[in-house]
Design a protein around this nucleic acid. Structure first.
Lengths: 339, 339
DNA sequence: TTGAAAGCGCTAACAA
DNA sequence: TTGTTAGCGCTTTCAA
């Protein structure tokens, strides 16, 4: 059995309170005593009992991060950022992978609340079904009532709850991107959107349509993927017949899939068809041709969220933390071939 | 403040012990009482206090997973597999990202032990420095002594400790792969290894060399990467001068980087240079040409590890759980051009 | 089938 | 500067 505070106290010939004070460094302890305690600590291989501490102090050393898919860089970048900030605050960040399932999302949030985590970060777009939003809203309200810091990173707050939101400018970025595509001369554009009923999909699609409307360009053919590379590949296969000069994808992963599909069919990018993405993942510059896309400060936003969830930073005033998007013009979008 | 067991008990007009029994279903409770308790539970939005339960029951509902890099599919696949099994057992899986830093690895393991997690899975190759292995060995011994299930997934047990190991056949797979390359007619082969001092690197390199020796082929030029795509890209740039007909990479990610580099230089794969990888990640079939590689049952192994860490499965007898590797012959390795 | 009560290991008043 | 002590919320004997 592991050594307890009492064991250490006995060995050092002091009270448990003194050992606790040495451990936490929150009250004065004489150098001599501290020395003795440290020795006892070492001799017994003492390891703090987290649950006991959490129970007594009514606060834990864990924060939770909800992501859709750890294997998608969009999420893993955010997870890393949050985890980094948590570790700086000496907290453990728990990464929970919902695999895109709304019920898993609820389940993980409950598990985190049960563990009385200090904070929770919800990353990525949220499902927009009212029932799901209500369920989330209820859990979040409970969490807040219990003193848990809840932060949204890349999704709106569910209706009726007021929590800090790190908001990426999906709509504005998407609008700027499509405007760029149009400016290059494209008129027949297809859009590979994310999954329907997802807040990120909705925002990006809205920005795309705004740009079309502003520039007086006819509506795009819109097909839905699920933000995965494979779904972009399939979408492109469906679109190949449709006589477009540009394909704008809802994220970089799908754009990479689109490029792979076009290449497989012998269609050149950008000579025959231009392709654009969104997110500016590391792979965007790696691919040939380098991807024209929109940069989102994912790492920065996730770290901000991590600091808030860790309690290092407190949000006062408006709870919407705006993160600008930046158009990254590279090689995958070019002037369409004359014909 | 959140409702406690006592609140629920008071409302239901029973004792806390009875509520606890209803919650855990481990002792008989009359249907009527159970009904009353359930109603009170619902009315108060009761959420179990994990730390208190962990303290009283001396066992938590959390398992930890140590990975190098969540954004690398090799790890994220394993993380997902373990997490899936944990969730099936109604446990929370904590994913800890060490970013390849040995000190972070130790730090996270300590944090997990402090939380008194039920089990820990260490994935991926381990650093081979004796001091680090000793530090790990010490922590693991403490963990085991405290009743925590520790499982290695894809790395050997540190010297002196006997823990279950899910062992992927890196050496055999690598040997078979290189043998295949040689059989196709290659004699001048370069090897892009993983980072030095990593157990996976060592095993795969050993298998590669065995095959060379067996087939009487001269030693390869070996350059080291860090298992990332970018490092494969750079390695290929260095190797381009060196007159080889095949480049074998220590993992798929680096192989993808190699292919990208060759393509950028206008070198055709496999016509000019053949390329092989290792792991058979999903992207291996996505790339052009499809990657000849070695399949490792990462998901299966990680799930096995997850079950053991969760306590669902107990290992008796030999603690080495062997996972075979399978050669996947695709298009990226071809007969070298005559010259 | 249920309740009373003794902890689990720690923190944080309160005293000294 | 240090010790004493009362919980934190739950589980689990032991009795009834």
């Amino acid at each position: 059995m592991a050594a307890t505070l009492a064991d250490v106290a006995a060995r050092a010939g002091v009270s448990t309170a003194t050992v606790s004070r040495v451990l936490n460094g929150n009250y004065p302890v004489s150098a001599l005593t501290r020395e003795r305690v440290h020795r006892a600590l070492g001799e017994l291989d003492y390891v703090v009992n987290g649950p006991a501490r959490a129970l007594a102090a009514a606060t834990s050393e864990v924060i939770g991060v909800i992501v859709n898919d750890v294997s998608d860089p969009f999420f893993s970048i955010q997870a890393s950022g949050t985890q980094w900030e948590a570790a700086s605050a000496d907290l453990l960040a728990v990464i929970c992978n919902t695999a895109g399932s709304p019920s898993d999302e609820l389940k993980y949030i409950s598990m985190l609340l049960r563990q009385r985590v200090r904070g929770v970060v919800l990353t990525g777009g949220s499902r927009e079904e009212p029932e799901h939003l209500q369920a989330i809203a209820k859990l979040i309200s409970q969490a807040i009532a219990a003193g848990t810091a809840v932060v949204m990173c890349g999704r709106p707050a569910p209706p009726g709850v007021d929590v800090p939101c790190v908001a990426f400018d999906n709509e504005g970025g998407s609008r700027a991107l499509t405007k760029h595509v149009i400016t290059m001369g494209h008129r027949r554009i297809a859009y590979v959107a994310g999954p329907p009923g997802n807040s990120t999909t909705t925002a990006r699609l809205a920005g795309h349509r705004q740009a079309l409307a502003e520039q007086g360009v006819p509506d795009s053919v819109v097909v839905h993927g699920d933000f995965s590379r494979a779904s972009g590949f399939n979408a492109a296969m469906d679109l190949i017949e449709s006589d477009v000069t540009a394909i704008v994808a809802g994220n970089d992963l799908m754009a990479l899939g689109v490029i792979a599909a076009l290449r497989q069919r012998g269609i050149r990018v950008p000579e025959d068809i231009s392709v654009a993405g969104f997110d500016d993942l590391p792979a965007a510059v790696d691919v040939v041709p380098a991807l024209t896309t929109v940069r989102l400060p994912l790492d920065k936003g996730a770290r901000r969220a991590g600091r808030i969830a860790s309690g290092v930073e407190t949000v006062t005033g408006p709870t919407r933390l705006w993160m600008p998007a930046e158009l990254m013009v590279r090689e995958s979008v070019a002037v369409p071939a004359a014909r």
